[in-house]
Write a protein that binds this DNA or RNA. Structure first.
Lengths: 147, 147
DNA sequence: CCTGAAATCATTGGCGG
DNA sequence: CCGCCAATGATTTCAGG
């Protein structure tokens, strides 16, 4: 993990579809060297994947929300399974504290949200917040290179 | 937004670096047709970008947490600016409810987390939850095609 | 890690539905 | 308007050093 890898990761985070030739120009290495480094970063698990970011509003799901679910029963893994089966849920964290699960959901209307919350309430108390804005879009922290 | 676009979006969400030729095979269209559709989806803002997902733990930030910040003052935009300037903060939502901001952070040690929370406390009350697991990694909901 | 050749891919223009 | 085919230029990949 030297300064080259650092630049490569930053560039791939900014634009995952960048070409190796352009990436090579950006870091001052040859294209094969860059391709080799990227493959190593993938196999080391540093790069977990490449994902297109989709505008959920334009897909018909303009309402995004965060739901804190205080799981009440002992069947935690069963709850996780059910949550996985709900397509409105686009991300989910298992967290410390009373909540247990923090869920991110995307829905078309408030009626659907109400119905989703009703389904989640069988697993415990819920606290829902509507997302108004995303002042910081997903980014990576500064990378401390060994070189 | 027909079934072709739907499959294209799903494939690019799964692997943003997929080649047009492979994508074309996957959706049963020609490569130029796929390239054309992708460009249109980009320009329509349906595709917002392509991002490599980095393992923050492997980068030296093994601790991830969600911090609910109940912003107390009226200088909300100033708080957002300051939050943007904190590199440990990797994502931030402006939300309804008492919290105001829900922040996702990645840090190397608990000491750093403590220091981050101390910095955030000047803006309001904080409630921190450590992320134990991610049972549902970011995904897209089912796409309702018009065709 | 670089260079250079071979294979593969992206892109463009022209044609047909 | 939308997609296909064919050709050209660019990129990726693999070999040798």
């Amino acid at each position: 993990m030297d300064r080259f890898d650092k630049k490569i990761l930053a560039a791939l985070h900014e634009n995952a579809r960048i070409r190796f030739t352009e990436l090579a120009r950006h870091v001052n290495l040859s294209a094969p060297a860059v391709a080799d480094r990227v493959e190593k970063l993938e196999r080391a698990g540093v790069i977990r994947g490449y994902h297109a970011t989709i505008d959920l509003g334009k897909l018909g799901y303009p309402i995004q929300c965060l739901i804190e679910l205080t799981v009440k029963h002992l069947d935690y893994f069963s709850v996780v399974e059910q949550v996985r089966g709900m397509p409105e849920i686009v991300e989910c964290f298992s967290v410390t504290g009373t909540s247990g699960l923090t869920i991110k959901a995307a829905v078309d209307t408030m009626a659907t949200l109400q119905e989703l919350i009703a389904r989640l309430m069988q697993f415990g108390d819920t606290k829902t917040s509507i997302v108004i804005d995303v002042p910081v879009a997903p980014r990576i922290p500064e990378i401390h290179a060994e070189d």
